[in-house]
Design a protein around this nucleic acid. Sequence first.
DNA 1: TGGGTAAATATGTCCGGACAAATTTTCAGT
DNA 2: ACTGAAAATTTGTCCGGACATATTTACCCA
Lengths: 253, 253
Amino acid sequence: MSKLVAPHGDLPRYHQISNILTERIELGRYAIGDLLPTEQDLCAEFDVSRYTIREALRRLTEAGLVRRRQGSGSQVVANKAPANFVHSMRSLSELFQYASDTVFKTTAIELLVPEPEVRPYLGETADEPWLYVEGVRLEADGRTPIAFSRVFINREFEGIAPDIPGVGGTIFRLIEQRYGVTVEDVEQEIRAEPMGKYAAKLLGSSTRIWAVRVIRRYFGEDGKILQISVNYHPADRFSYSMHLRREGAKGWV
Amino acid sequence: MSKLVAPHGDLPRYHQISNILTERIELGRYAIGDLLPTEQDLCAEFDVSRYTIREALRRLTEAGLVRRRQGSGSQVVANKAPANFVHSMRSLSELFQYASDTVFKTTAIELLVPEPEVRPYLGETADEPWLYVEGVRLEADGRTPIAFSRVFINREFEGIAPDIPGVGGTIFRLIEQRYGVTVEDVEQEIRAEPMGKYAAKLLGSSTRIWAVRVIRRYFGEDGKILQISVNYHPADRFSYSMHLRREGAKGWV
DNA sequence: TGGGTAAATATGTCCGGACAAATTTTCAGT
DNA sequence: ACTGAAAATTTGTCCGGACATATTTACCCA
């Protein structure tokens, strides 16, 4: 029954329930890190259908209080609604500190689509097609595959595509020279993700494998995305190292 | 029907439909101010249930393209995802920037081996034993585990080991103060690897999980390895992005 | 024409069921 | 402790239906 709780006068049932659950989270009955009761249990407790419970849980998710995962459950990630929903993205390591110094060594690239296709970049919300090239990054011997790369280029620069000599190499120099466009901003993301079968096969694996995925978005002056590069570094082969200097004791020790 | 559109490979139906509708809005087929077809009409057009249509429309609403009103209909209010998105990305990076500054302050380390053992570091060729400590990196709440860490310290500095207050924190300050040894170089390696059950369990998972593994080796003056740290960041929690400015052409193009 | 009311329309809330997909658990073996 | 495979669990997707509620439209009347 839970009475003197939250304002659920004539609110819809799912709203009332999300209020109750929110209160429980705030009061610590469901602590951070805990799993909420399963949908089925909540259905039983509140005597409503699964739809109503899911609607309530959706509210909690949108509020950033809960993270839901298929097969796993609903986990409490915050005990009060964060000012920014992004907070629910748990992350972080001290990598930030010097990740900007990251330098990926360039090696040879074998182009798999020498005549660039026009495809949508699945990771983007918009379905606008991009110039699309993919390649395998090779070791110095020119034979051993190291990583699989995809590069999506803004169609505005269509003309230059066929000249692309390598991923992460000189594409931008070309764009800059031909179009006078300068890169203003770069956004980088690193994840561990399973690699598609196709890409995996190119790297010598017959099945899907895990990889470190590095996504980079290059922005132009007006915030327009110029290029997106996606690199898959297979877990068993990927290993990049970099050296850091100790200037100014940035705090990484 | 509509084929050459959007990326709807194996996306859920409601996702495919929201992509299609988004496209129509972007291309002006549904102009700003217009009312979208009613749910019923959309159900008929795409031959799906109302649930699916509503799920698709919810996506458009959350993207800020559409406003829905009971009794009235679904009205187009923007023809492209509002700059809000970019904005949130920017604040995201700012958030991370902030996070990177505060990680060390807010993160606690729970030592699992307060009395350091002497073990070989498996990743090294030599089987010379290292001082060995492991711990769980916790969030500010002191309860939520974020990452699992192992630290191997050169036995030369054995004496200081018990004082280790945290991983990535002050170990080196101690070494420096006591032995006058300065870090000359740091080498970092990132991989995706499965995490052992033991480590995984410490992070709240009862089974084996994948993780981004970060290995760092700290070198002294003569190239001697002073310390090795190994951090496991569970795949589903690890994901960071950041912005890079283009100053001095650091070589990332 | 203006105003009020009823009917039609459109989205909101809610149910019960079914199967799919992801994750965790269990268990046996090394 | 690690590996591998099967079983159990949990959320995700999707259906068809029902009624509630807000808004718009149609219509009648002064």
